[in-house]
Nucleic acid binder design. Sequence first.
DNA 1: CATGAATGAGTCTTCATTCAT
DNA 2: GATGAATGAAGACTCATTCAT
Lengths: 220, 220, 220, 220
Amino acid sequence: MNDPSGFEFAFMNVTTKTLKPRKSPVQARSAASVAALHTAAIQVLTREGLSRCTTTLVAKRAGMSVGSLYQYYPNRDALLATVLEQHLNTVATAVETACQQCRGQSVIHMAEGLVMAYLAAKLHSPDESKALYSVAGERDGARLVAIMHGRMVIAITQMLVSAPDAHFDDPALTAGIALGALSGPVRTFLEGLTAPGFDACLAEQLTLLLQGYFKCCATT
Amino acid sequence: MNDPSGFEFAFMNVTTKTLKPRKSPVQARSAASVAALHTAAIQVLTREGLSRCTTTLVAKRAGMSVGSLYQYYPNRDALLATVLEQHLNTVATAVETACQQCRGQSVIHMAEGLVMAYLAAKLHSPDESKALYSVAGERDGARLVAIMHGRMVIAITQMLVSAPDAHFDDPALTAGIALGALSGPVRTFLEGLTAPGFDACLAEQLTLLLQGYFKCCATT
Amino acid sequence: MNDPSGFEFAFMNVTTKTLKPRKSPVQARSAASVAALHTAAIQVLTREGLSRCTTTLVAKRAGMSVGSLYQYYPNRDALLATVLEQHLNTVATAVETACQQCRGQSVIHMAEGLVMAYLAAKLHSPDESKALYSVAGERDGARLVAIMHGRMVIAITQMLVSAPDAHFDDPALTAGIALGALSGPVRTFLEGLTAPGFDACLAEQLTLLLQGYFKCCATT
Amino acid sequence: MNDPSGFEFAFMNVTTKTLKPRKSPVQARSAASVAALHTAAIQVLTREGLSRCTTTLVAKRAGMSVGSLYQYYPNRDALLATVLEQHLNTVATAVETACQQCRGQSVIHMAEGLVMAYLAAKLHSPDESKALYSVAGERDGARLVAIMHGRMVIAITQMLVSAPDAHFDDPALTAGIALGALSGPVRTFLEGLTAPGFDACLAEQLTLLLQGYFKCCATT
DNA sequence: CATGAATGAGTCTTCATTCAT
DNA sequence: GATGAATGAAGACTCATTCAT
């Protein structure tokens, strides 16, 4: 909510023209409005679901009129896509950073580092993470998911390759499975399907999961 | 003044009254129509997406009129929920059966049996599985997912408890993580985010994943 | 209003798919609805002007709901284009027929025949003719106008060529000017810019106009 | 209870209060801005069409903000009406001047003078002439067209009356037809419905047209 | 005075649902 | 029972106009 450093649009290649905000959030007013719209979108998404997440409702919740929403986004999909992209980008970046830092360490540490970074990013704002699952299922969302997924798989792969204590025959495959194995339980948790107290064990269990997997996969 | 309809959410008793077809598929005609509607719904879902999956379109693709669709389902959501429920039920039942059969076996076999059953059910009709992810994200869908998830976690838990070669401190937790770890990579695969040839390794990798995890979790 | 013979879609090549009625007016009900929409469109066009000729208003005036309008036309432009096309087609056909019949006659008769046919078609329903001028100015309308204009110029040209008592160096040019000279005063009249009683002299004056022009243009 | 505002439609007194720029173009700045707006309006009209000729777009193309536009015009219609009025006024004035100069000459010269003046005015800026047809079809536009048409008919009538070599039974009628006969082909040309090279013959043909007509109409 | 962000009424269009035939 | 035309509420989006800065 207070991120005065401004948004990082590090992945310009990701978005198409039509999905980009109409105005770059340079001016303070614009930035505030855009932020309000993002927050509002997530709230409406959470409370009403994707199909009832209407532009009018989002604008109202953000304290502005529909017209203003369209000053910042060319259409509803662009708004949702931007919110999703921001979220996914945060997660992907966190994973990339963690993978970078874990290079050359043991697979035990790698598993732990990866899990910690992923969880921290994903659970930082559970409502947001949960709400955006529905957006991720839509056409535009799927594209973004694919891109971010790709980034993370690459990062993990490069990390695995650098392991001194293990060799992976198909590191990209292992990375893909590992990422999926991470996201599955996290989604289950975010969607409220787990028993209370589950979150306390989540990090530990996921670390065990990946450590076991990495060990099994490793040759030599 | 008590609710005479007795809305009991027997957790294992999957369906509620409102989500059931109006007709029991006793007559051949009805059964055929319902089946046609299910197939059609999945096709339209696949080709058009959730928001453009309209009742008229589904009915047409099923070779009947909208009016007839409403003969079998009280509304659009009921149709989609039923289709989803059927799918989830198939998967849950497959998992339950496999878990039943693996009781008393080694955790190695358990992992293998669980993975095989889950994959077989999920990949039997990939289009269907993929298409229904969007339905699962909606209000009604989430409820069904929760129910089915619960069934599977219970089944897996009971299986784990019966393992002669391992003891789990919190078998339900382990079961939940295991199920999530299974569904994550499968979803990744179904959503087309994996490299070609991924499916060939999927069963093997998931088995490794669960075996590693089960071993790590087990106390002596 | 009572044209039980149904509409003649003699110029299938004229319309694009998206501008065609969604349903062919085969059934009596459909035909009636389509006719009602045409009439209503012209009325709204006359009373409110093009910009206020909204789909809701047209539907209401036609005694149905918006939804029904969209059962017959894919969008507002298609409705207006169809109405315009019908009108222009009537006029063009009338001119073609007259030109056919006047072939081989003197230019005097040609002028008279052309004027009579054009006027009869154009003044048959003055409100309609007037109302459609605005539609003719829009993108889609301009295309239709161009097509129909082309048809009439060709018809007139072929007629002129057949004149036994005159030779035209550039008959197509003469035909184009003649048609323009006809449509100009008629539009002036329809738009209400002329004094009362003007219509009584219109046929005579236009005949004089064309006769004088044809004589001037003719060589030999 | 009489209308104290005295809305007199002096027919020659072209403009009404509400359609005039709010500022008299005394200051150089205002004059420049108004001129820029006129030019911009025609450009936008040409490129986008009437319905997409928005105030924001016009202002932007004129190098100013919407707010400034409203400094000069009370609303969108007033802007368009003024642009149209200016155009029509130029044409009408040119015709009036020509008719004045042709008084007392032969009908042959009259026809030529009228055609030349009309064409010169109308084709001076073809884009403008064409673009304004759509504006002329709207409510306000029709009123202006009527006024200007009236001025021209009067001018032509007075010219015809002064012809030494011809007598017209109903000179106003003849004038009206002549003006219509002129505007028809010109519109056809401006709307791009004529073959390339048409413009080269336009003056000549229109002169022939009117000369032939005048001769036919004349008594003795 | 200029600016351009904000407003929100008004359009088009879709689609779940009903019901006369 | 089947049909599919009719309904109309609801949502996306535009744009004339205003007004705080």
